[in-house]
């Protein structure tokens, strides 16, 4: 579905991504993980076209991403940011339906879709007419997810979608999210720095460091056959959640 080949991106001289090859299969969830500044968010930003690669090519459903095609291709992708990126001057409903209205959908179609998404994301219907500031952090992320899913995109890109939430809400939303991913059968690319979260969601986990892919596979592979010493250190640094998981495989 998504394919990066030899992609390189530099910021002010330092490499954010160096000669990166990555293939994300259709209907699978790929989790990008690594320490801060490893380039994991850059991959999402390159896919959605907020930045252009310095070298290499990105393909979306077999087509190369080109600036001229971006507005159209972006409608086939949904993008969720850590703090939601909700527009404060629009209600929850206004945020969710913005693009559909811009594209001239009929109001019945819009209403039906919003109802469907509210049910899917467990968002209370009476909250739809509130403004983002009147919603809790968890609710804001649900709205952000609804907005990303509104046009029923093939690809869902999530940049630390749960990073700003407190643990209880985070746990609840994690379950809801995984449920949604499996029901919708979308190609999902998610960025996190939390190993437990990565293992919880990811069919494939991609570990990055300094703009390079260090290892790609399941958590179990990383644990038992680490590509190098950094993989082991990274996993051990986040040991506690790992142990909890071993008890309930």
């Amino acid at each position: 579905m998504l394919e990066l080949s030899h992609v390189t991106k530099h910021y002010a001289g330092t490499a954010a991504l160096e000669d990166c090859d990555l293939n994300m299969a259709s209907g699978e969830t790929t989790v990008l993980i690594g320490p801060s500044g490893c380039g994991k968010s850059t991959i999402l930003r390159l896919i959605i076209g907020l930045q252009l690669p310095d070298a290499g090519q990105i393909q979306f459903a077999g087509q190369p991403l080109e600036p001229a095609k971006l507005p159209a291709l972006r409608q086939r992708m949904g993008y969720v940011l850590q703090d939601g990126g909700l527009f404060p001057h629009l209600s929850a409903r206004g945020n969710v339906t913005l693009m559909a209205q811009h594209l001239g959908w009929a109001s019945q179609r819009i209403d039906a879709r919003v109802e469907e998404l509210a049910e899917l994301t467990h968002f209370p219907v009476d909250g739809l007419d509130r403004f983002p500031v009147q919603l809790s952090g968890g609710q804001q992320q649900r709205v952000s997810l609804m907005r990303a899913l509104m046009l029923d995109p093939e690809v869902l890109l999530l940049d630390e979608p749960l990073g700003a939430l407190d643990p209880m809400i985070r746990f609840e939303l994690q379950n809801d999210l995984r449920d949604i991913f499996s029901r919708l059968n979308k190609t999902v690319v998610m960025v996190t720095h939390d190993l437990a979260e990565a293992a919880f969601f990811g069919d494939t986990i991609v570990l990055l460091r300094d703009g390079r892919i260090i290892q790609q596979g399941t958590l179990r592979q990383m644990l038992h056959a680490p590509a190098d010493e950094f993989v082991t250190r990274f996993i051990h640094a986040q040991r506690a959640p790992l142990e909890a998981m071993e008890e309930h495989p």
Binding site: I48, Y79, G85, F87
Partner: peptide, 13 residues
């Protein structure tokens, strides 16, 4: 910036 980029990422012209 997140708001401006969200608008761009939605595919709005």
């Amino acid at each position: 910036l997140p708001l401006r980029e969200s608008a761009e990422a939605l595919g709005l012209s």
